[in-house]
Design a protein around this nucleic acid. Structure first.
Length: 283
DNA sequence: ATGGGGGCCTGCCGGC
DNA sequence: TGCCGGCAGGCCCCCA
């Protein structure tokens, strides 16, 4: 489910209860999610202090005092719930366990973090911190879209000659890491580029425009997540998914929001995924 | 190498 | 109310 902005929002929500804290007890309720958990995961987590909580693409990385790093991927339906330590509110009971609560981390500050994932497309793994970036899930990722190495010359080089639609190219985590279906649709709408356009056929100006637009779309979504987080980590302590208003995503049949356009948002399927777009604005 | 399709899982929503 | 098909924001793997 979550794309880069949602994962970043979750990471920021976890920082106050995890960073610098010791995992006093880890409970693992099943063998694994998408892949088996690493051997002895609960024991390797218990007693470890989280020294830093980082993000790479859609992965959360918790560096531990044991010189291991815990990799967390939320898949499509993964959620992190915080209980036992609410913002200024008197509250220290934990809610009853729910279906699909797969991993539970109790922290020394009194917080409990529960990883719930109905579809089990998520993942957790442990690896030495020193070689974290060579983890198979991370080693071939493209650059961070908000980082310095993601720029126009880079993107132009990666799209050059590619016959795949720009929609698919931007979803390719090897080209740029962290975009998913929603933000690719939103990016192409803002860039006024039709999703069917062959990546290699984009004009230079279009490629140049994509870089700042991708940055803007993601930054705005993180900002929206950050602001909703303040009111969002309450009642059930669920982190993460803010209501965000999209310009085209999931708006099939609704009017294009561009003033005076008057067209209707369309939907096509590309590589098995829905692309939402304005057939008039996007060329 | 590249591009396309299948598969993994469960939950939800709309139509009948 | 229930059943059923279709769909979901991710990612890996296999095939041509």
């Amino acid at each position: 489910m979550p794309e880069l902005p949602e994962v970043e929002t979750v990471r920021r929500g976890l920082v106050p209860v995890m960073e610098g804290r010791v995992i006093t007890q880890a409970a693992v309720n099943r063998e694994g999610l998408r892949w088996p958990f690493p051997a002895g995961m609960a024991g390797r987590l218990s007693g470890a202090r989280v020294t830093a909580l980082r993000r790479r693409s859609k992965y959360i990385l918790a560096d531990l005092s044991t010189d291991e790093t815990l990799l967390i991927h939320l898949g499509m339906s993964g959620r992190m719930l915080i209980s036992g330590q609410m913002l200024g509110t008197f509250h220290h009971d934990h809610p009853a366990p729910k279906k699909h609560d797969h991993v539970v981390l109790d922290m020394d500050g009194g917080a409990r973090i529960t990883f719930n994932d109905a579809r089990r497309f998520g993942a957790m793994d442990l690896m030495p911190t020193a070689t974290a970036e060579s983890h198979p899930l991370l080693s071939s990722l493209g650059p961070e879209p908000l980082g310095n190495t993601f720029d126009e010359p880079y993107l132009a080089a990666r799209l050059k000659g590619r016959n795949t639609p720009i929609k698919s190219a931007l979803l390719d985590q090897h080209i740029v890491a962290g975009l998913g279906n929603i933000y690719v649709c939103e990016t192409l709408y803002r860039a006024r580029i039709a999703p069917q356009t062959k990546a290699g056929n984009l004009r230079a100006g279009q490629v140049a425009a994509l870089v700042p637009i991708i940055r803007e779309v993601l930054a705005e979504a993180i900002e929206a997540g950050g602001s909703s987080l303040r009111d969002f980590r309450q009642a059930d302590g669920e982190l993460g998914y803010f209501q965000h208003s999209f310009q085209v995503y999931d708006r099939e049949g609704k009017p294009c929001v561009t003033l005076g356009c008057g067209a209707t948002v369309g939907r096509i399927v590309q590589s098995g995924r829905s692309s939402f777009y304005c057939p008039v604005c996007q060329r």
